[in-house]
Design a protein around this nucleic acid. Structure first.
Lengths: 120, 120
DNA sequence: ATTCATGCAAAACCTTTGCAATGCC
DNA sequence: GGCATTGCAAAGGTTTTGCATGAAT
């Protein structure tokens, strides 16, 4: 049921997933979606991320990656893990902390919005 | 009113702030707190951050810094901005994106919880 | 008199939970 | 019969909004 659906994209909110599942099985309730998402996370099949102020998004664990989100326009850039390697190494060395760069997005300003800010 | 209160700490949720304000002015409603927090943010006096799954936390903009939060035990480490400089430079060069390392915490595992994971 | 900020209640938003009903072994 | 899973409704936690009152200019 759910697995079939996961072949339909990344960064899906629970509600989007519910709508998609309901296309095939109309009686599936969103609380069931949440419960199954939780189980699948415990199994390590999927992960969720927070991409800003909206609802959490879910995706297959194998597709997980970091994100940069523009605070001004909401643009989403995907971040290859290599970008975080330096930070991860430094933080592990200095604080003994092992970062998970996927769980929460990094916010900031995209190129276009930086220019808008500069122009005022 | 609010400013007086901000001399009382960082990482305060709206509800904690409301309780603190109500110690001096009992009739202040939490919606007023939210409205004033929003105004102060637009003025650049304060910022809010998301330190995990709980409520947003507010603090004076001048005290803002990044955070590393342990996904297992919730421990909070404060992150000097220098740690993010390398990542910020790389991301600006490669993606034209200017990161704000304060807004969302970086999750991961603290030293103690890494060891538990390894043993467990 | 007009504007603006406030208190309050209610809604909105996302997520979790209690419970009764259903299906499976 | 027991056990796990579901649908539904309701609640939970956080934040926002509508509206009427009341203060300040």
């Amino acid at each position: 049921l759910l697995e079939v659906l996961f072949e339909a994209g990344e960064h899906r909110s629970a509600e989007e997933l519910a709508t998609a599942v309901q296309g095939r099985a109309p009686d599936v309730h969103i609380s069931t979606i949440y419960r199954n998402l939780e189980d699948l996370q415990e199994l390590g099949v999927i992960v969720h991320s927070h991409l800003g102020h909206g609802p959490a998004t879910y995706q297959l664990a194998s597709l997980a990656h970091g994100h940069f989100i523009c605070e001004a326009c909401g643009a989403t850039l995907e971040a290859p893990d290599e970008l975080f390697r330096g930070l991860a190494d430094t933080v592990r060395a200095k604080l003994g902390f092992s970062i998970d760069p996927h769980h929460f997005a990094m916010l900031g300003l995209c190129m276009g919005c930086q220019e808008l800010t500069r122009l005022g």
